[in-house]
Every structure is written in structure tokens, then in C-alpha cells.
């Protein structure tokens, strides 16, 4: 019996496709059939940096179909810059799939997906799964400007209803994406969100006000990405099903426990978060 039941593995792959969707926003496609077969919506991978920088980079798994998986990322530092320099034919090693993704059970019919910036990378797979299951999927997609609403049309082609928001008003709602969600005439059955932490906090607030359950895919600084270092924790309710199995005495008199974003998450129920 293996020490740890997991479908995650190290995958030595080759880049087969590179697209620059906007300035600094890159999609790298690679062949990894075993990764694709194991991936559930909302999971991520650790990309081993080709430039020798310290620590692998956590990235949402954007596409996973057939033999092909892809990652979508914004070039922010040395590690993402090294990834952005890869070209078709170059080697790319990834570890995954990792983490607990979105819970799409329960027969939801009407779902709002909220994506901020490159948070879009983690919501294509859940959108596709929900659409396949016959759900209505509205994509609330926010970015600084219209050019950074990358692959928006792709989601429309898949069958999502697009509600855009931009900081400069160049497309859709002029303002934050959660404001568009707050104004929606009908509350959805479920909200899924991925994006910057301030956006996730705002979405959690809207979800609570509208009494809609929400699952948030969190972003934290990772070191190991596999649950070994306890560096990426977020405080959650000790009563959460995702709480690590710690004894009550470990709670220091409170009802909060530190859960690893990489392993217990990255997707948490908004009502469980104590951040």
C-alpha cells in the first residue's frame, strides 16, 4: 500500500504550444495524458522552474483534454519569466494534479463563476464540467482593461454567459467584478471564484449577503506545494470538513485552525474561512 494515496506525480513533458494572449499573459500547452486523466476542476500543478530559481511555481491547470494540458499565467517575476521563455519542443517538468478542487456535486443548475485577472486559469475546467452537466454558467470576468480579459470569447464559445468588468470601463461594467455580481437580478445557486485576495474577500461578502454558497480558490505564497512545509496556511473554522485533523487543544481556545492552502485547499467554502 502506498504511504499516501494520491494521483499526483512528477511529469516530464514537452511544450507543444505557446500563445501570448496579451502582453505578459502566456498559455503553455504540453502533452501529459496521465496528468489530464487525473485532473479535477480547480486543481493546480507545480511547474519546476527551468531557470534554476528557488521553489517551483504553483499554477492552475487551465485546459485538460485528451493528451493536452495547459497553464495560463501572468509574467510577474523570475520564475514566470523563465516559463514564458519556453518554446514548443522545450522540456517542462510539472508535479500534479495537486490540491482539492471545486465541489461540483449536488446538482447545481445556476452557477456564477467569478474570475479576476489570470484567476481565469482555474475556472475553465469547472465551467466545462458544469456546462456538460447541463448547468447555466454565468462568467463574471474582471480585469484592468478589455485587452486583459484574455480568452473571454473562448468561454462564450464553450457556452458561458459573459459579464465583463474592467477597471477603466473599456469593456462591460466600469468597476470591480464583484459589483456586477452584487447587482445580478437573480441569485445563483452557487458561486465559484478565483482571483486576487481582495476580490475573493469582496465576493465572499456578496455571497453572504445574497445567501449563496461560494467556493473560493485561494492564492498564497507556496514553498513545497505538496503539504510538507505548512507555509501557505489560511485560518478556517475548526468545524470545516477541510480542517486538518488537529486535536481540539491545538486550537488555543479558539474555533479556528490553520489549513494548508496547497493541500486542504486551494478551494475553500467562503463560510469556512476565518481570514
Amino acid at each position: 500500500m502506498p504511504l499516501l494515496e494520491s494521483t499526483a506525480r512528477v511529469h516530464a513533458t514537452t511544450v507543444v504550444d505557446r500563445r501570448e494572449l496579451a502582453a505578459g499573459i502566456i498559455v503553455l500547452g504540453f502533452d501529459a495524458p496521465e496528468l489530464v486523466a487525473a485532473t479535477r476542476p480547480g486543481q493546480y500543478l507545480m511547474a519546476i522552474p527551468p531557470g534554476g530559481e528557488v521553489c517551483a511555481t504553483a499554477l492552475g491547470i487551465y485546459e485538460a483534454q485528451g493528451t493536452r494540458a495547459s497553464i495560463l499565467f501572468f509574467v510577474t517575476g523570475k520564475r514566470t519569466r523563465a516559463l514564458a521563455e519556453l518554446r514548443p519542443g522545450d522540456a517542462l517538468t510539472v508535479m500534479g494534479p495537486l490540491g482539492v478542487g471545486f465541489d461540483l456535486s449536488g446538482g447545481v443548475r445556476d452557477v456564477a463563476i467569478v474570475a479576476g485577472g489570470v484567476g481565469i486559469a482555474s475556472v475553465l475546467l469547472p465551467a466545462q464540467a458544469l456546462l456538460r452537466a447541463g448547468a447555466r454558467v454565468q462568467l463574471y470576468y474582471g480585469a484592468r482593461n478589455a485587452a486583459l480579459l484574455v480568452d473571454a470569447e473562448r468561454f462564450v464559445t464553450e457556452g458561458c454567459e459573459l459579464l465583463a468588468a474592467t477597471d477603466d470601463g473599456s469593456r462591460g461594467h466600469h468597476g470591480y467584478v464583484h459589483e456586477a455580481l452584487a447587482r445580478a437580478p437573480h441569485a445563483p445557486d452557487l458561486i465559484l471564484a478565483c482571483g486576487p485576495t481582495p476580490m475573493l474577500r469582496a465576493v465572499a461578502k456578496v455571497a453572504a449577503e445574497r445567501r449563496v454558497p461560494a467556493q473560493l480558490s485561494l492564492e498564497e505564497t507556496f514553498a513545497c506545494g505538496v503539504g510538507g512545509c505548512w507555509g501557505c496556511v489560511v485560518p478556517i473554522a475548526a468545524t470545516s470538513a477541510q480542517a486538518p485533523s488537529f486535536p481540539p487543544a491545538a486550537l488555543g481556545g479558539s474555533d479556528v485552525v490553520n489549513a494548508r492552502v496547497c493541500t486542504e485547499g486551494p478551494v475553500f467554502w467562503a463560510h469556512d474561512l476565518r481570514w
Binding site: P2, L3, S6, A8, R9, V226, G227, G228
Partner: peptide, 11 residues
Amino acid sequence: CYGSGIEYAPF
């Protein structure tokens, strides 16, 4: 760095 020793077992 290696948790409980088993987190790295898949890799």
C-alpha cells in the same frame, strides 16, 4: 521541509 515524511511519497 518534508512534513510528516509521506507528503513527498508520490514524487
